[in-house]
Design a binder for these strands. Structure first.
Lengths: 307, 307
DNA sequence: ATTACCATATAGTAAAAATCTATCACATAA
DNA sequence: TTATGTGATAGATTTTTACTATATGGTAAT
């Protein structure tokens, strides 16, 4: 296989029309060019130069090939330049995984500020359930994960991000005892709807239901928070909705009643995850610090930042 | 300065995700790759791979640079190809891409005559779904593509080849109204099976189903025309099968009923594609002319040649 | 004709780079 | 635990590249 250097020699000799002069400009000796050009011609199976007594001229074949060689070298220089840009880590594309119960309600608050801070940063966001996020991160399908994941294998790093309360949603036409915050005993015997068991939220809800003696309705499992909300509106039961969802999607109090649970013990905790030995790990930490600042500044009234 | 060989190593390791396996496929030893990749990373000033215990994964930076490296290598292959073609264009090996729904049923009619005309011509045929064919052609993994592709980027040339009708296949033991050609209204409410959405045929079928009020069954998607046929035989629904497939594979009328759709408006159109600036483009045109002659002569009763 | 001077080609050697063998260290699966 | 997978490393070896010195051939002035 030929080399980029041979192409460089090719281009230079073609331009100046002389091995000696080209050699001088390239900082090598003339025999080097003789040998390397021959090797290139051998590799291509084509004679590139016509060596005359006072000059070394391109053959028609060489003339056809020269522009392509020049383009290729330009492209090579382009790659080198890209690489130098990318080397500061904020010029790359990272694959970010988030659960569908968080992404659409968190990222709109995050991405604009992030883009402002890291102009050249690109995030490919993909939604998957938490288990898949964890697996995908380990297997390298994701570079970063933000989600309600509480413990991770040694190969990953988990940095706590924030705590998000879950609110009780009930239909407005339902006759519900509590007016302000709801006590656990108010839930006794009531039907509760929840996301399917692939979502971590469900475990929190299960625990509450068990303590409060509420009935977790397994027949109707929401596949999205929107579906869940609709089911509550239609009177199929109550549900716990995460604060960021409520903040971004619940605008009509006449349709749905949203209340806080007494004691503030119902929440989920989101973390920022990446592979411990990822070459960009230092940049990830910068990123995490910045995300935390944005959350504190813009979402501090809804969630609680963690350390 | 880095070398083309290092880029080749880069690409191969990126693809297989393992130094050892890549080394085997490249015909070198694993330490060679360790050293050369490190040298390439050094030259670019960027870490391309994340070496874990189980695998060697691309970093985000590597992922960003890989396409450029592939493009450069494709261009290098292009230069080599140009050089060889400067003497004799019909003396080469071309990589022909076809969809799996066409290749096995068209090429057996084409290749013998083609070989007779161009004794030294070699075609490496490879089957992929249409989208991949188009991508592969752009990226230089294919030289030629024959398939049902209707529009192409500026960098490619699309030459229409022929129009192939789609026939309705139904199980013989099904009570089906029409005896000769089938009218669209005969399809109302029936179950239709189709290839998955990566195949262009599906779009034609979707259109017909919508017009005729048939039900496109999405639960069982055929992954090959043979599977599709088997599913029809087993009574899971009707399907539209392309004429060349019917011609070459349907030999038992007692197993499957094949009918034409009234109006002759259901068909797919195959084209002959190549890169606009491919050095062999003139030869490709010769090739296309010859293929068209063969089709007209040998398959004129089944398909309609186009210009 | 001879000589000086321009070009590229070649031979042989030295330096550098690429590759291989062998082995290590570590993780995972059986 | 062992067997087998992963990449990293050291040192020997082969291959490639480049250099020096010289050869070859042709032109132009003497």
């Amino acid at each position: 296989m030929a080399s980029l250097r041979q192409l460089e020699y090719f281009a230079e000799v073609a331009e100046v029309g002389s091995l000696r002069q080209a050699a001088q400009r390239l900082g090598v000796t003339q025999p080097t060019l003789t040998v390397q050009l021959r090797a290139l011609e051998e590799a291509l199976g084509v004679v590139l130069f016509e060596r005359t007594r006072n000059a070394t001229l391109l053959t028609p074949a060489g003339r056809d090939l020269l522009p392509e060689a020049l383009t290729l070298m330009a492209q090579w220089r382009n790659i080198v330049e890209s690489a130098h840009l990318i080397s500061d880590h904020s010029h790359s594309t990272y694959r970010l995984g988030v659960p569908p119960t968080l992404g659409p309600y968190l990222l709109p608050s995050l991405l604009p500020s992030l883009h402002q801070r890291f102009q050249q940063l690109r995030l490919h966001v993909r939604e998957e359930v938490p288990d898949m996020l964890l697996k995908g991160l380990e297997e390298g399908r994701f570079d970063l994960v933000i989600g309600p994941i509480s413990s991770v294998p040694e190969a990953l790093v988990r940095e706590p991000l924030f705590r998000e309360p879950l609110f009780l949603a009930s239909p407005v036409d339902m006759d519900f005892p509590a007016v302000g915050d709801v006590a656990e005993r108010d839930l006794r015997g009531l039907d509760i709807l929840a996301m399917d068991e692939r979502h971590t939220m469900r475990r929190e809800v299960e625990r509450i239901c068990e303590r409060a003696g509420a009935r977790l309705n397994s027949d109707y499992e929401g596949t999205s928070l929107d579906t869940l909300r609709q089911m509550v509106v239609m009177g199929m039961g109550l549900a716990f909705l995460p604060a960021l969802y409520v903040r971004s999607e619940i605008h009509r109090p006449e349709e749905l009643r949203v209340q806080r649970l007494q004691g503030g013990r119902l929440f989920r905790e989101h973390a920022f995850l990446y592979r411990r030995h990822a070459p960009s790990r230092h940049f990830y930490q910068q990123l995490k610090a910045h995300i935390r600042e944005i959350i504190t500044r813009d979402l501090g009234d809804t969630v609680t930042p963690l350390d």
